[in-house]
Protein backbone atom coordinates (compact mmCIF):
# COMPACT_ATOMS: atom_id res chain seq x y z
CA UNK A 1 0.00 0.00 0.00
CA UNK A 2 1.28 3.46 -0.76
CA UNK A 3 2.10 5.77 2.11
CA UNK A 4 3.11 2.93 4.36
CA UNK A 5 6.34 3.28 6.30
CA UNK A 6 9.37 1.15 6.99
CA UNK A 7 10.84 1.75 10.40
CA UNK A 8 13.66 0.46 12.55
CA UNK A 9 12.80 -0.39 16.14
CA UNK A 10 15.32 -0.59 18.94
CA UNK A 11 13.53 -2.38 21.74
CA UNK A 12 14.57 -3.25 25.28
CA UNK A 13 14.44 -7.03 25.67
CA UNK A 14 14.71 -8.51 29.14
CA UNK A 15 13.79 -12.11 29.98
CA UNK A 16 12.74 -11.50 33.59
CA UNK A 17 13.39 -9.30 36.60
CA UNK A 18 16.69 -11.01 37.42
CA UNK A 19 18.27 -11.28 33.96
CA UNK A 20 19.98 -8.15 32.65
CA UNK A 21 18.38 -6.87 29.44
CA UNK A 22 19.68 -5.30 26.25
CA UNK A 23 18.52 -3.28 23.25
CA UNK A 24 17.59 -5.40 20.21
CA UNK A 25 16.96 -4.02 16.72
CA UNK A 26 13.90 -5.12 14.69
CA UNK A 27 12.67 -3.90 11.33
CA UNK A 28 9.00 -2.82 11.20
CA UNK A 29 7.95 -3.07 7.57
CA UNK A 30 4.90 -1.75 5.76
CA UNK A 31 3.43 0.13 8.73
CA UNK A 32 0.29 2.16 8.03
CA UNK A 33 0.37 5.74 9.39
CA UNK A 34 -3.18 5.15 10.63
CA UNK A 35 -2.10 2.39 12.99
CA UNK A 36 -1.75 3.13 16.67
CA UNK A 37 1.67 2.61 18.21
CA UNK A 38 0.51 -0.57 19.94
CA UNK A 39 -0.99 -1.92 16.69
CA UNK A 40 2.41 -1.40 15.09
CA UNK A 41 3.95 -3.47 17.89
CA UNK A 42 1.23 -6.13 17.31
CA UNK A 43 2.29 -6.35 13.65
CA UNK A 44 5.95 -6.69 14.60
CA UNK A 45 5.04 -9.34 17.19
CA UNK A 46 3.02 -11.30 14.64
CA UNK A 47 6.13 -11.45 12.48
CA UNK A 48 8.21 -12.60 15.45
CA UNK A 49 5.70 -15.33 16.34
CA UNK A 50 5.71 -16.62 12.73
CA UNK A 51 9.48 -16.83 12.92
CA UNK A 52 9.18 -18.74 16.19
CA UNK A 53 10.73 -15.95 18.24
CA UNK A 54 9.58 -14.62 21.60
CA UNK A 55 7.22 -11.64 20.97
CA UNK A 56 7.91 -8.25 22.54
CA UNK A 57 6.08 -8.11 25.84
CA UNK A 58 4.35 -4.84 26.69
CA UNK A 59 1.51 -3.78 28.98
CA UNK A 60 -1.79 -2.77 27.42
CA UNK A 61 -5.48 -3.10 28.18
CA UNK A 62 -8.17 -0.62 27.16
CA UNK A 63 -6.27 0.95 24.25
CA UNK A 64 -8.28 4.15 24.60
CA UNK A 65 -6.19 6.06 27.11
CA UNK A 66 -8.14 5.45 30.29
CA UNK A 67 -6.70 2.36 31.97
CA UNK A 68 -3.10 3.48 32.47
CA UNK A 69 -1.61 0.12 31.47
CA UNK A 70 0.47 1.11 28.46
CA UNK A 71 3.81 2.47 29.52
CA UNK A 72 6.30 2.91 26.70
CA UNK A 73 9.26 5.25 26.80
CA UNK A 74 9.46 6.21 23.13
CA UNK A 75 12.42 8.17 21.74
CA UNK A 76 13.31 9.71 25.08
CA UNK A 77 9.77 10.60 26.18
CA UNK A 78 7.12 8.72 28.14
CA UNK A 79 4.16 7.93 25.85
CA UNK A 80 6.08 9.29 22.88
CA UNK A 81 6.41 12.70 21.26
CA UNK A 82 2.82 13.97 21.61
CA UNK A 83 1.40 15.76 24.65
CA UNK A 84 -1.60 14.73 26.68
CA UNK A 85 -1.96 11.19 25.31
CA UNK A 86 -0.95 7.68 26.30
CA UNK A 87 1.17 5.29 24.18
CA UNK A 88 -1.99 3.56 22.88
CA UNK A 89 -3.40 6.89 21.64
CA UNK A 90 -0.21 7.64 19.73
CA UNK A 91 -0.48 7.08 15.99
CA UNK A 92 2.20 6.09 13.52
CA UNK A 93 1.57 9.31 11.55
CA UNK A 94 3.60 11.00 14.30
CA UNK A 95 6.67 9.25 12.84
CA UNK A 96 8.27 9.39 9.41
CA UNK A 97 9.37 6.74 6.93
CA UNK A 98 12.81 5.36 7.72
CA UNK A 99 12.83 6.62 11.31
CA UNK A 100 14.54 4.72 14.10
CA UNK A 101 12.30 4.40 17.13
CA UNK A 102 13.80 3.55 20.51
CA UNK A 103 11.35 1.85 22.88
CA UNK A 104 12.22 1.35 26.54
CA UNK A 105 10.35 0.49 29.72
CA UNK A 106 9.86 3.02 32.57
CA UNK A 107 13.16 3.27 34.42
CA UNK A 108 12.87 3.44 38.19
CA UNK A 109 14.10 1.37 41.11
CA UNK A 110 10.51 1.29 42.36
CA UNK A 111 9.28 -0.08 38.99
CA UNK A 112 11.28 -3.28 38.38
CA UNK A 113 11.08 -4.63 34.83
CA UNK A 114 8.87 -7.74 34.72
CA UNK A 115 9.68 -8.59 31.12
CA UNK A 116 10.81 -6.51 28.13
CA UNK A 117 8.75 -3.28 28.26
CA UNK A 118 6.47 -4.17 31.18
CA UNK A 119 7.26 -2.93 34.68
CA UNK A 120 5.80 -3.86 38.04
CA UNK A 121 3.97 -0.71 39.14
CA UNK A 122 2.42 -2.19 42.28
CA UNK A 123 4.37 0.44 44.25
CA UNK A 124 1.59 2.83 43.17
CA UNK A 125 -1.06 0.42 44.45
CA UNK A 126 0.66 0.21 47.82
CA UNK A 127 0.74 4.04 48.04
CA UNK A 128 -3.00 4.06 47.27
CA UNK A 129 -3.64 1.38 49.90
CA UNK A 130 -1.79 3.54 52.45
CA UNK A 131 -4.38 6.30 52.26
CA UNK A 132 -5.80 7.00 48.82
CA UNK A 133 -9.39 6.36 49.87
CA UNK A 134 -12.25 7.73 51.97
CA UNK A 135 -13.85 5.63 54.70
CA UNK A 136 -17.63 5.91 54.45
CA UNK A 137 -20.45 3.70 55.61
CA UNK A 138 -22.47 2.12 52.85
CA UNK A 139 -26.21 2.50 52.83
CA UNK A 140 -28.81 4.18 50.69
CA UNK A 141 -27.59 6.22 47.73
CA UNK A 142 -27.11 9.81 48.96
CA UNK A 143 -28.61 12.69 47.03
CA UNK A 144 -26.15 14.01 44.44
CA UNK A 145 -26.23 17.58 45.70
CA UNK A 146 -26.53 16.81 49.39
CA UNK A 147 -23.16 18.39 50.15
CA UNK A 148 -22.61 21.70 48.35
CA UNK A 149 -19.21 21.92 46.65
CA UNK A 150 -18.15 25.14 44.88
CA UNK A 151 -17.71 24.64 41.15
CA UNK A 152 -13.99 25.64 41.00
CA UNK A 153 -13.20 23.18 43.80
CA UNK A 154 -15.17 20.41 42.13
CA UNK A 155 -13.36 21.10 38.84
CA UNK A 156 -9.96 21.13 40.50
CA UNK A 157 -10.68 17.87 42.33
CA UNK A 158 -11.90 16.33 39.09
CA UNK A 159 -8.75 17.39 37.26
CA UNK A 160 -6.62 15.76 39.96
CA UNK A 161 -8.80 12.66 39.83
CA UNK A 162 -8.15 12.13 36.13
CA UNK A 163 -4.77 10.54 36.99
CA UNK A 164 -4.73 7.03 35.50
CA UNK A 165 -1.75 5.83 37.53
CA UNK A 166 0.34 5.07 34.42
CA UNK A 167 3.63 6.20 35.94
CA UNK A 168 4.71 8.54 33.12
CA UNK A 169 5.55 11.16 35.76
CA UNK A 170 8.05 8.83 37.39
CA UNK A 171 9.45 7.85 33.97
CA UNK A 172 9.88 11.50 32.93
CA UNK A 173 11.38 12.71 36.21
CA UNK A 174 15.15 12.87 36.25
CA UNK A 175 14.96 11.70 39.87
CA UNK A 176 12.28 9.04 39.28
CA UNK A 177 10.10 10.86 41.79
CA UNK A 178 6.44 9.92 42.24
CA UNK A 179 5.38 13.29 43.64
CA UNK A 180 2.99 14.18 40.81
CA UNK A 181 1.11 10.90 41.14
CA UNK A 182 0.94 10.97 44.94
CA UNK A 183 -0.02 14.65 45.00
CA UNK A 184 -2.85 14.07 42.50
CA UNK A 185 -4.21 11.22 44.62
CA UNK A 186 -3.86 13.28 47.81
CA UNK A 187 -5.41 16.36 46.19
CA UNK A 188 -8.51 14.78 44.69
CA UNK A 189 -9.64 13.81 48.19
CA UNK A 190 -8.15 16.73 50.14
CA UNK A 191 -10.16 19.17 48.03
CA UNK A 192 -13.54 17.58 48.68
CA UNK A 193 -15.67 17.56 51.88
CA UNK A 194 -15.77 13.75 51.89
CA UNK A 195 -11.98 13.65 52.15
CA UNK A 196 -11.68 15.96 55.16
CA UNK A 197 -11.87 13.49 58.10
CA UNK A 198 -8.77 11.61 56.93
CA UNK A 199 -7.10 14.52 55.13
CA UNK A 200 -4.04 15.01 57.37
CA UNK A 201 -3.55 11.33 58.18
CA UNK A 202 -3.83 10.45 54.50
CA UNK A 203 -1.08 12.77 53.30
CA UNK A 204 1.32 11.50 55.97
CA UNK A 205 0.63 7.82 55.26
CA UNK A 206 0.88 8.19 51.49
CA UNK A 207 4.13 10.19 51.63
CA UNK A 208 5.59 7.63 54.06
CA UNK A 209 4.69 4.80 51.68
CA UNK A 210 6.09 6.77 48.72
CA UNK A 211 9.42 7.13 50.55
CA UNK A 212 9.34 3.45 51.49
CA UNK A 213 9.02 2.42 47.83
CA UNK A 214 12.31 4.09 46.91
CA UNK A 215 11.17 6.86 44.58
CA UNK A 216 13.45 9.88 44.18
CA UNK A 217 12.92 13.40 45.50
CA UNK A 218 11.11 16.16 43.69
CA UNK A 219 13.28 18.97 42.27
CA UNK A 220 10.37 20.83 40.64
CA UNK A 221 11.70 20.45 37.09
CA UNK A 222 8.10 20.05 35.85
CA UNK A 223 9.06 17.32 33.36
CA UNK A 224 6.26 15.21 34.92
CA UNK A 225 3.66 17.87 34.22
CA UNK A 226 4.82 18.12 30.60
CA UNK A 227 4.56 14.37 30.06
CA UNK A 228 1.41 13.49 32.01
CA UNK A 229 -1.17 12.08 29.56
CA UNK A 230 -3.91 13.53 31.76
CA UNK A 231 -2.13 16.89 32.19
CA UNK A 232 -2.04 16.79 35.98
CA UNK A 233 -0.69 20.12 37.21
CA UNK A 234 2.35 20.82 39.37
CA UNK A 235 0.12 22.81 41.73
CA UNK A 236 -0.98 19.44 43.14
CA UNK A 237 2.55 18.98 44.51
CA UNK A 238 2.44 22.36 46.24
CA UNK A 239 -0.96 21.48 47.68
CA UNK A 240 0.30 18.14 48.97
CA UNK A 241 3.41 19.73 50.51
CA UNK A 242 1.24 22.34 52.18
CA UNK A 243 -1.00 19.64 53.65
CA UNK A 244 2.04 17.59 54.67
CA UNK A 245 3.67 20.46 56.58
CA UNK A 246 0.33 21.47 58.08
CA UNK A 247 -0.13 17.91 59.32
CA UNK A 248 3.41 17.63 60.64
CA UNK A 249 3.97 21.07 62.16
CA UNK A 250 0.68 22.84 62.74
CA UNK A 251 -1.83 20.20 63.72
CA UNK A 252 -1.70 17.86 66.68
CA UNK A 253 -2.95 14.33 66.19
CA UNK A 254 -4.67 14.09 69.53
CA UNK A 255 -7.38 16.18 71.11
CA UNK A 256 -6.06 18.59 73.73
CA UNK A 257 -6.92 17.54 77.29
Amino acid sequence: MSGNMNLTLKVWRQKDVKTPGKMVTYPAKDISPDMSFLEMLDVVNEGLIHKGEDPIYFDHDCREGICGSCSLYINGRPHGPKQGITSCQLHMRSFYDGQTIIIEPWRAAAFPVVKDLATDRSAFDRIQHAGGFVSINTGGVPDANEIPIPKPIADEAFNSATCIQCGACVAACKNASAMLFVSAKVSQLALLPQGQPERYQRVQSMVAQMDEEGFGNCTNTAACEAECPKEIKLTNIARMNGDFFTAKFFKSDEVHA
Binding site: P78, E104, A226
Partner: peptide, 8 residues
Amino acid sequence: AMAPKSPS
Protein backbone atom coordinates in the same frame (compact mmCIF):
# COMPACT_ATOMS: atom_id res chain seq x y z
CA ALA B 1 19.38 4.36 26.33
CA MET B 2 17.94 7.46 24.69
CA ALA B 3 18.75 10.70 26.50
CA PRO B 4 15.51 12.00 28.09
CA LYS B 5 13.81 14.65 25.96
CA SER B 6 11.02 15.64 28.32
CA PRO B 7 10.66 19.42 28.23
CA SER B 8 11.94 21.16 31.36
